[in-house]
Structure formats: structure tokens, C-alpha cells
Amino acid sequence: MSNDSETRDVVLQIDNLESYYGPIMAIRGVSLTVREGQIVTVLGANGAGKTTLLKTVSGVMDPEKGTVRMQGTEIQRLDPDAIVRRGIVHVPEGREIFPLMSVAENIAMGAYTRTDRSGIAADEEMVYSYFPILKDRRAQRAGTLSGGQQQMLAIGRGLMSQPKLMLLDEPSLGLSPLLTHEIFEIIVRLNTEQKVTMMLVEQNAKVALDAADYGYVMELGRIVMDDRAEVLAASKDIQEFYLGVSQDENQRGQRRWKQRKTWR
């Protein structure tokens, strides 16, 4: 959470991005910046367009308008494999592992775009050092892992492509608070120790803001607010709508049932 992170080189620059999910406009002109070494989080409720945003960056969806620039080069209409080769890896929501393959094979698939055998072997050891449980289960079918282990596998598999930028979609989804805490601890460690820049999409604002340097709030396909993570965490709107802290009652001793958000 260093302040100097705001002057570092830009890794990912998104400008006026618009993406459709079938006939529905899921992202309506989103612009955001991710700088080297940062953890940037995008908060928002279900259906805010967070996943569509990540899918557009990783090339699974093509945007209608706008640009996505990775270290200065436009990548918005490239195929997903070309984008992985440029150093962006997407760790999808709901794990999305290869269920019938072993844990070790799943991890090996993460290095599909690489050919340096010794580097791959070293990175496998690195992944196992962060997730020792995966080493114990390396021969097990990935589909039989628990939810938390599958999430670890998805992150570990993502690391194998040597990403400069990792897109994490709801790493806390379906995990217990304890496991969520554990996963986020590892995410922060990866960020500081392995120098992986992270863009992290979350509904769980508390853990996300604790881990992040900078945050964006997304509603109905638009960015409605952005600031340093600690500023966001202190903001009344975020506290009320995303952190579930109840506000003081008003002068007449009643709660307002319909709160207005400052950005509307």
C-alpha cells in the first residue's frame, strides 16, 4: 500500500471500453489504469459487469468500442492465446480447472505457451512452495479437489504462464472466511515476492480493499468511483453499500430506508 505505486509504469490501460453480452451492453465506457506492482481491485455487485470486463481484457470477448493497452500496445481484438503470450493471465471465476486431469497436468497446462523446460520445472516448484497441499495431491484428479484447493490450483496454474499481470475473478467465491483470508494472503505474497501485478474483481469488498493498493467501484457497467484502497475503505458510501457498516440514524431517530448514493 505504498503511495509511490501511483507513479510507476502503466501495465494495463483501458479506455472507454464498451462490451456487449448478447444484446445487453454489459460495460458502458470503462476506463481504468493498472500500474506495475499494484493490486487493483474492481468492486461491484452481481451483474455490474466485472467478469465481462476481465473477459474483454483477456480476449475471450471482443469489445464493441474502446481500447485495451498492455504496456502501450493495443490488444483488444487479439485471440486469447496471443494475449497470454503477452503476459496477461486470467484466473476465472468458479475455478474452471480441467476436472479429469491430474493436479500436476493442470499445472503443466498453465505453461502451455512456454517451451523452456528448466524454467517450467523451476516455476512448478515455486507454485508448490506457495500451495504445498497441491504437491501432496499432484497425482489426484483435479475435479475431486475441494473448492479451496481448486481455487489454489487455478491460481497456481495461472502463475505457470509467467504473467506480468494476473486477472483474478472472484477468488473468494464460495470459500469460507478462513480460506478466503488464506487465499488473499497468498495473493499479496505473490504480488510482493513474485512481482505479479494483479487486477482483482470482487464482491467481498472487505478482503479486496485490505489487499489492494487502488480500487474502482463498478455499477451497471460503469465505473462510479475510484480512489486509493484505504480512502475507499473509509468512504461512507462504500462502508454502507459494500462493507455493510450501518450509518447513524438521522435527526428524527429513523433510518432512511432508501439511501441515496453520492454518485447518483
Binding site: 483477456s58 475471450v60 494475449i83 497470454v84 476465472p92 480447472i97 480441467f98 476436472p99 502451455y112 504462464s161
Partner: peptide
């Protein structure tokens, strides 16, 4: 087994 995940891994599906 998982076409979407294969895309994410950079496999030219």
C-alpha cells in the same frame, strides 16, 4: 474438458 479454461491458458482452441 473445459474449453473456456483452455482459452485462458493460451491454448489455441
Amino acid at each position: 474438458q473445459n474449453q473456456l479454461a483452455a482459452y485462458y491458458m493460451g491454448i489455441p482452441v
